Amino acid sequence: MTTLQATSGDIVRVLFAILLPPVGVFLQVGLGLHFWLSIVLTLLGFIPGIIHALWIILTR
């Protein structure tokens, strides 16, 4: 069984993921494919961008 421990950096990234999804993804993975995908999803609809950003942050 694994335990989840949130650090202050995780909290900041989650807040950015909700307010500005590409920034949250950038803080987690840098300027990679997921960052550009987050920008596209955010432009197509804000909610898909948030979902993608949270998924990236919480699974890595």
Rank of each mutant, 00 (worst) to 15 (best):
A53H: 09
S38R: 02
A53Y: 08
R13P: 00
I50K: 04
A17E: 03
P22M: 10
F26V: 14
I18Y: 06
L31S: 07
W36G: 02
A6I: 11
A53K: 06
G49H: 06
F46W: 14
R13T: 00
G32Y: 15
T42N: 06
F26K: 15
F46Q: 07
S8N: 14
W55I: 12
S38Q: 04
V12A: 15
G45K: 11
L27E: 09
I51W: 08
L15C: 10
T2F: 12
I51T: 12
D10S: 12
G24D: 02
G9Q: 14
I18C: 08
V12S: 07
T7C: 09
S38C: 13
R13C: 03
Q5I: 15
L20G: 01
V12P: 05
H34C: 10
F35P: 00
Q5C: 14
H34D: 10
L54R: 05
I47C: 04
S8A: 15
V29L: 12
V40I: 10
L27D: 02
F26W: 12
I47N: 05
V29C: 09
M1C: 13
L19F: 13
G24M: 02
G49A: 01
L27M: 15
S38H: 03
F35Q: 04
L41N: 02
H34F: 14
V23H: 11
V40R: 00
H34I: 10
I57D: 03
L37K: 01
V29M: 04
I50M: 09
G32A: 14
F35S: 02
L37C: 05
R60I: 10
G45M: 13
I11Q: 11
L43S: 04
F26A: 13
I11D: 09
F46R: 14
I11L: 15
L15P: 01
L33N: 12
V40Y: 02
L44D: 08
H34A: 13
L58Q: 10
F16Q: 09
I47H: 04
L31V: 13
